[in-house]
C-alpha cells in the first residue's frame, strides 16, 4: 500500500506512458520529433531513478579493489569516489594501467550498466 500518493519514479513512469500512448500518436513533423526528445528524457530519468543506487554500487564494486590497490591503500582517507576515479585517470594517462585486465573488466561492467540507462 502506498497511500494513494505517487512518488517521483511512479509519476515519471506515468508521464512516459501518457506521452507514448496518448500524445505522440497525435503529433507529426517537428512537434513529434520534440515530443520524442521529451519521451527519451523521461525514460532516462525514470531508469536513472530506479537504478541510480545500483549503478553507484556497481561502480564502487568494480573500481573499489582497483582504487585501493592503485593508490596503495584502502579508501580510509575520506576521499570520495570522484577522487578515486581521478587517481585512476592520472594513472591511465601515465601508462601505469596499460592493458590492465582488471581495470578493463571493471570498465566494461560500468559501460554496460550505463548503456542500460539510455534508450
Amino acid at each position: 500500500m502506498k497511500g494513494g500518493e505517487a512518488n517521483a519514479a511512479e509519476l515519471l513512469r506515468l508521464v512516459e506512458h501518457e506521452l507514448a500512448n496518448e500524445v505522440l500518436p497525435q503529433l507529426s513533423g517537428d512537434l513529434r520529433y520534440r515530443a520524442r526528445l521529451i519521451l527519451n528524457a523521461v525514460k532516462i530519468a525514470t531508469a536513472e531513478l530506479q537504478a541510480d543506487r545500483d549503478l553507484s554500487t556497481a561502480i564502487k564494486d568494480a573500481l573499489g579493489p582497483l582504487t585501493a590497490s592503485a593508490i596503495d591503500a584502502p579508501d580510509t582517507s575520506g576521499k570520495g569516489a570522484a577522487d578515486q576515479v581521478q587517481a585512476l585517470q592520472q594513472m591511465l594517462r601515465q601508462g601505469e594501467l596499460d592493458a590492465d585486465p582488471q581495470l578493463f573488466e571493471a570498465l566494461v561492467c560500468i559501460a554496460e550498466a550505463r548503456c542500460k540507462l539510455v534508450p
Partner: peptide
Amino acid sequence: ALSLPLEWGLR
C-alpha cells in the same frame, strides 16, 4: 569530465 573508458581509449 572524468570518464575512465574514454581515458582508456585515449591511452
